[in-house]
């Protein structure tokens, strides 16, 4: 029972941290005084972890720009290849239809003459 309440309280505390709320403990202290007291070290640990892993990291601007340029070049190339691929299939389809029409005409010619 306590485990489930503890889990709920810890998750609610994490949500409050992420939303920048600072009155979490006061709000829950009246509802779950014993649990909040017992969980205090874990709240503190969560807050320290939150502060630590939120420390900003700056990516090298040149890397970011170069990677974007390379990716866009690749994306353009992919698009071109897809279009070419599309035209190839279209040409192949058209050729198949033409061959079919010619074959049908030839067949008709042969069978027509035989009659």
């Amino acid at each position: 029972m306590d485990d489930s309440i503890h889990s709920d309280l810890l998750n609610a505390h994490a949500d409050a941290l992420l939303q920048g709320e600072t009155d979490y403990r006061e709000r829950y202290q009246t509802l779950f005084p014993h649990q909040v007291e017992a969980l205090d070290p874990l709240f503190a640990l969560a807050e320290s972890t939150y502060t630590l892993v939120r420390a900003p990291i700056t990516m090298r601007a040149q890397f970011k720009a170069t990677l974007k340029a390379d990716l866009l070049a690749q994306a353009h190339q992919q698009r071109l290849l897809r279009r070419r691929g599309g035209w190839r299939w279209a040409a192949l389809g058209a050729s198949a239809v033409t061959v079919g029409v010619i074959a049908a005409a030839a067949w008709r010619g042969t069978h027509g003459a035989a009659r």
């Binding site: 503890h6 810890l10 998750n11 070290p41 503190a44 640990l45 807050e47 320290s48 972890t49």
Partner: peptide, 27 residues
Amino acid sequence: YHRTLLALREEMEQRGYTRGADGANGT
């Protein structure tokens, strides 16, 4: 998440921190 915080507290205690990472040694 609950189990993670418990495990983290244990790891901190093994490193000599008795009250999470706050208080006198706090971050």
